[in-house]
Write a protein that binds this DNA or RNA. Structure first.
Lengths: 196, 196
DNA sequence: TGTACATCAGTGAACGCGCGTTCACTGATGTAC
DNA sequence: TGTACATCAGTGAACGCGCGTTCACTGATGTAC
């Protein structure tokens, strides 16, 4: 017996967190195993003690978001399970479509940072992204359902509006236009929750 | 004088069209110069007679969409400049958020196929994407403006909803859920144009 | 309590392959006369 | 009209580098006695 299992798990978690940040910044293909391991203060060779492939790391990094950095993000955004669902949904929209989130390259939601990397990954990785979306949609569905005819349609559309608004804002070289589309998506999403 | 200039321009156009399709299918980094040139029935070496770099080709491929494959796409979708703006917008929404568009890997809008490749490209490439978005937004703005308080906000939100809905639908491994989000985005976008 | 030993997380060099880019060369085209 | 010539689009081999993955080795940790 060398080391305890906790030691290895901590190392694994450090690798995943390093990867999550680097993928968010540079995309899946823009990041090397070297970069990931250096970010975790380790050297290249040890990587395959923890993962079978770079793709497997991709899945782990995305999966880590919900309960890891995403939980911190939700706390900062004031998304609180103790609140009524409608308030949670409003806080979620406000935080997700905020300019802080747009500038937060390290902490942002992976659906914004890596949409096309996601679409071209294997099914395990895509399932990890799907879980993020499902979580977001059910939060909206709860928040919107109280006095709404089609809560599910509205919840799915809110998710599309949130992700789409941010993905586009990220792409545009004209930062004024980027802010404009982010703000427009925010206002429209807000209107979809409060009224009718 | 060897050849006429028209010959070279035709070759260039073939390379761009080959690249556009391949980028749509495999992403920018998933495509090699070899693949592009083979798709244009040429060999590797000649590429640099036409472009200075792979990035420059990326910009050219995206720029080609509006007046090239995108014009065919609009015709198929029944988006017609002769129609009243509101009808154009409705046709656009219907075509963009259709399941045919979701399945059309070759002919799809590059904003759906390549969102994260776009965000990490240089400013020329990102400007090419921005032009696609600006065209889409102004079409919606015209179509929505007639009896609307905030036509610009609505137009920008419609673009975010269209792109976001399709990007997410592409990513999800569960094709039922993918269809559900595409349809939800379609219904919501349609409601945004017809009423209030 | 101290010592020998077994385990395996971590190291760093090396492998092998792919790909963007370069370059000397070829040959089809159009011009000059 | 026919022939020699100049141009340059296109060819295909080669270069150089980077990166995912492998592997023999090291050394820190925990166990056995």
């Amino acid at each position: 017996m060398s080391y305890n299992t906790e030691h290895k798990q901590r190392t694994r978690a450090k690798i995943i967190e390093s990867a999550r940040i680097l993928f968010n910044r540079h995309g899946f293909q823009g990041v090397t195993i070297d970069m990931v391991m250096a970010g975790a203060e380790l050297t290249r060779g040890g990587f395959y003690n923890h993962f079978n492939s770079k793709q497997e790391l991709h899945g782990a990094a995305v999966s880590s978001f919900l309960s890891g950095r995403g939980a911190i993000w939700r706390a900062d955004a004031g998304v609180d399970r103790a609140d009524p669902p409608a308030r949670m949904a409003r806080q979620m929209i406000q935080g997700y479509l905020s300019s802080e989130h747009l500038d937060d390259l390290d902490g942002q939601c992976p659906m914004i940072a890596l949409p096309s990397d996601a679409a071209r990954s294997d099914v395990e990785v895509r399932s990890a992204y799907q879980k993020l979306l499902v979580a977001m949609v059910s939060l909206f569905e709860d928040g919107v359902g109280e006095n709404e005819a089609e809560p599910r349609q509205k919840a799915l559309s809110l998710a599309a509006l949130c992700v789409g608004g941010m993905v586009l804002a990220r792409t545009l070289p004209d930062s004024t236009l980027a802010e404009e589309i982010r703000e427009a998506a925010y206002l429209t999403a807000s209107e979809m929750v409060v009224t009718q």
